[in-house]
Amino acid sequence: MLEIDGIAAAYGNIEALRGVDLLVEEGGITCLLGPNGAGKTTLMMTIAGILKPRRGTISFLDRNITGMTPSGVVRRGIALVPENRLVFPDMNVHENLVAGAYLRLGKRKSQVQQDIDHVFERFPRLQERSKQMAGTLSGGEQQMLAVARALMARPKLLMMDEPSLGLAPLVVEEIFRIISDLNADGTTIFLVEQNAHMALQVADHFFLLEQGQVTFSGKPGQLSEHEVIQRAYLGKGPQRNQPAADQGRPDRTTLPSG
C-alpha cells in the first residue's frame, strides 16, 4: 500500500534518514520501532509531505507521492496522528473533529456530520465532552481526540506517531485496544512506537529503524522481545557486540502523565 524506497532526508545539516526502504501492507498493522533520534519522526514528516526528501521515492496505492504538499498527501488518503497529539487547545472537541475533515468541508457538509456521529459512537467519551475545550481534556482523552480527528479525514492509511507517549499504563492499553479495533474495522495502520512491548502485541509486521536505516524487518516472534526492546531503546544493532543479558532491561515503558 505504502512503499518507501531509498528515502534520505535531513534536518538542517544532520542526515536523519539514510536510505530507508519500507513497505506497509494493506489491511494490517505495521510497526516502526527504534530509539530516540533514529529518524522515526523524520520519516513520518517526510511521508506527510512536511519535509522534502533528498533522495528516494514514496508511493501510495501505486502512485508516486514523493514531494507532494501536506494537503495533497491528506487528499490521497493518509492521515497522521502526530507526536504529542497536537490537538487545538482552544477549540472544543466538536470543532477539532470538524478541522480534521477540513478538506471535505467545502462540498460535503452533511457527510462530515455523519462522520462525526460515527466517531462519537466509537468514542462515547468524546461525545460527552463535545463542547469542552480540547486543552482541558486529560492526556488520554486528547490522544483519543487526535485519533478521532485523523479519522475525520477518512484515511485509507492512518499513521500514528508515538501514541503512548506520556500516558499512564492503563491509558496506553486503552489506546492500543482502539488501534486494534480500528484495524479490525478495516483501517490500515502504520504505527511508530517506542513502547516495543505493546507494539509487538498488535503488530502484524514490524521494522527496526536505527541511525537512519532499517536494520530489521519481520513478524513479531522472529526476534526475541528482549532483543527488540534492547534495540528499540538503545539502538544496539547486530553489527555491534550484544550486551550482556543482565544489562538492565529498561522497564520504564511509560512516563508518568500529568
Binding site: I50, S71, V74, G100
Partner: peptide, 9 residues
C-alpha cells in the same frame, strides 16, 4: 504544525 496535518495550507 497540526493545521498542516489537517491539509490546511
Amino acid at each position: 504544525r497540526a493545521a498542516l496535518f489537517m491539509g490546511i495550507n
